[in-house]
Design a protein around this nucleic acid. Sequence first.
DNA 1: CATGAATGAGCCTTCATTCAT
DNA 2: TATGAATGAAGGCTCATTCAT
Lengths: 242, 242, 242, 242
Amino acid sequence: MSTQSRKQREIQEREQRILETAWPLLIEQGYLGLSMDRIAETLQYSKGTIYNHFSCKEEIIIALAIQTTEKRTRLFERAAAFRGTSRERIHAIGSAATIFVQLFPDHFKLEHIIRSSSIWEKTSEKRRTIMRSCERRCMGIVGGIVRDAIAHADLTLDDGIVPEDLVFGLWSISVGAFSIITTSDQLVELGIQEPFETYRQNVHRLLDGFGWRPLSADYDSVAVDDRIRAEVFPEEFRAISA
Amino acid sequence: MSTQSRKQREIQEREQRILETAWPLLIEQGYLGLSMDRIAETLQYSKGTIYNHFSCKEEIIIALAIQTTEKRTRLFERAAAFRGTSRERIHAIGSAATIFVQLFPDHFKLEHIIRSSSIWEKTSEKRRTIMRSCERRCMGIVGGIVRDAIAHADLTLDDGIVPEDLVFGLWSISVGAFSIITTSDQLVELGIQEPFETYRQNVHRLLDGFGWRPLSADYDSVAVDDRIRAEVFPEEFRAISA
Amino acid sequence: MSTQSRKQREIQEREQRILETAWPLLIEQGYLGLSMDRIAETLQYSKGTIYNHFSCKEEIIIALAIQTTEKRTRLFERAAAFRGTSRERIHAIGSAATIFVQLFPDHFKLEHIIRSSSIWEKTSEKRRTIMRSCERRCMGIVGGIVRDAIAHADLTLDDGIVPEDLVFGLWSISVGAFSIITTSDQLVELGIQEPFETYRQNVHRLLDGFGWRPLSADYDSVAVDDRIRAEVFPEEFRAISA
Amino acid sequence: MSTQSRKQREIQEREQRILETAWPLLIEQGYLGLSMDRIAETLQYSKGTIYNHFSCKEEIIIALAIQTTEKRTRLFERAAAFRGTSRERIHAIGSAATIFVQLFPDHFKLEHIIRSSSIWEKTSEKRRTIMRSCERRCMGIVGGIVRDAIAHADLTLDDGIVPEDLVFGLWSISVGAFSIITTSDQLVELGIQEPFETYRQNVHRLLDGFGWRPLSADYDSVAVDDRIRAEVFPEEFRAISA
DNA sequence: CATGAATGAGCCTTCATTCAT
DNA sequence: TATGAATGAAGGCTCATTCAT
């Protein structure tokens, strides 16, 4: 049995190596830039070996998307488990979203590739199911906190404003900032010295704007932020800082 | 002479059709997804004809980038010419940026493609020059308004905050929101019914946050916005609304 | 009529310019290296204009071959008209052959191209006829001198030796030497400082070897050579020396 | 292991077939006439298969050049090892050169193609090295015999005459004769019945002319020639005669 | 299972030739 | 007659995928 599991482990490890090799190819050159030849050559495996793990190129792509999506789900789960008020918990979700964007700034590009090429149809039902369940899980988590906040009267929404607008706001600012940061090569020329700090300020104004109590002026948002970092995502913050 | 100009016009039109055909291929499939074969097949022209217009694939890509970049430059120029306070003029620039993102949500993807593949080197000096001059022009316009605002004491910045942070903020929120809008297919499921409205609210909080007077509470920002729409970008708003 | 002839002259001149442009393309890159596009581009004519002169690529090639072949015929005719003994006249033919090789070292390459590609069949009957008649003329000239020599008893041949062996010898040495000179880039490394002089010596030994009287030892071959240069090919020698 | 070697052998054989197919295309049509498509079509292999053997067209060309150059080197080595006087050994080299020209009359055309197109730069360093070492080896062999001859006082050179002139003479006559033989289709009409015999006579006069003792009149050059044929190149002469 | 040779569709680009103006 | 846009057949090369060993 130890032989079995060793073998299993080796297979897992190789699979991981394949995905790690594929990632930059896909991100930098798009769908057609990912080449089985290049993966095989880089890893010094034969092409047949690659095909023993993934039956086609599209399976590799979807596997990559599953990896990041799963990571995001874990982050959201851990954030939602943070002990505190609903404001603090959505704050933690915001942090999770931020961390996710920072850890995987290219995830959105990957999602776009999947949607724009006709990849989805070529993938196995098994992997498609995993992907969908991850997405549903994330929605459920955020939805749960929102319901909690309303139940605790922390959040009263103006007419026409739904809780998800906040989520969208966080998400939107994060994606936008990081998209520009990764894309533009003239931020410094434009006069942006510390894009991350500007980004953080925007986030706080947005949270207040939705009136989710306590407002950032009424509680030590920085302290909470520090607590979240320290208690929920210590490793991730270390990784990001490095 | 009318014969001449008819032929010329036909050529221009076909060039435009080529670019219009190339655009989605490039955006959806990336650099390697843009194929001269597919363009020719789609337009029912021979490949040779395509090459009579563009000497290589890269020239098509740079021509696309020039088109949107020129459009942006025109929008910025018109916005900067808006008669009003510096707040109103930067507001107009914000509107221009917003319009640009809405009209060409994929422009940033295109810029990324140009930068990540080695396209730049294969293009003609002529087109490279056009591209560069457009970029310089945009920077100069925004820089000019910022200098005006500071000179008129409309803008006083906290320590460590530079005027360009505002530009970055506007830009960031715009790009992010539109990136999500174009990418995600589950916004409605997430509960975002009107993403554009949420996006607009964020923009206003950001402008106030930088303290560029008069604050939105102290002037009728909606009215100004309407004036900008009506006076500066009537056609564009019609196009976006459609 | 002067209008007519001016027009005619212009046409002739353009035809000549086309051929001059085609020559290096054909010699350096072979049949497929000769491109109507490049000719048109180089001369700033439209492709249609080129086709008004030559109905296809092959016609240009054959026209080039006709040009050099006609030049050779003229040289042979002038050599054969040299006043002197048969030895001196064949000497003059040798000089003509030498001059031809020096003036048109690439003629043989051109001939080879014509023979190896299926050019001949695509050319017009008119040009084919010109080509053939030139070749027959050359043969006739040399054959005539040989018959003269035998009639005058200047030449007595051993059994199995035919007069044409001499022609072949001259031709062979000339072609070989010039072929190496144009082809090899390591003659100096091989120790060959003055290939032309070595070549000339070989030629003289060959002529004596065939016993065509008077032998070079019995007459001032250098003086005759000088006379031929001065009286028959003054311009050509100037051109070669330059 | 026999499986291994069988596969290896098959690959070798196919490589050889590719080269054999490429040779006439290259010789008859030049650099641009050699087409991977045509090779693949002729051999009924897919284009990919050809590319598994040779990474580009240029590699095929250089491989062809290496093949003949290596053959020449072997011939020269065997000739230089002939037991006899320096005169006899250079005679053997002459025979080797002759044999080479007869076996590979198109080798010079190939060399010309390599030099006139920009092939050299696209080839692998490995093949370039092989090529260069072959050429150096040939030069060294001939240079060695020349030094021997001078050391043994078999060769005394007039002022201004260097030993290499002889080499050039042999080379020149060989190349020229064979060039004409392969190029011309009217040798018989010109009256040349046995071009090879004429060629041989010229060679002998040249050797004598340089005074390399013993002169051909003083030794039985025909017998030595026969000995070289029989002892050094029996197979080659059989092949040529066939 | 691992290997890597074979396949063939597809990509970018060139070019001889035609033809409407 | 001159022009030059349009055509489409190649050509060099890449790459996902298959399959015999």
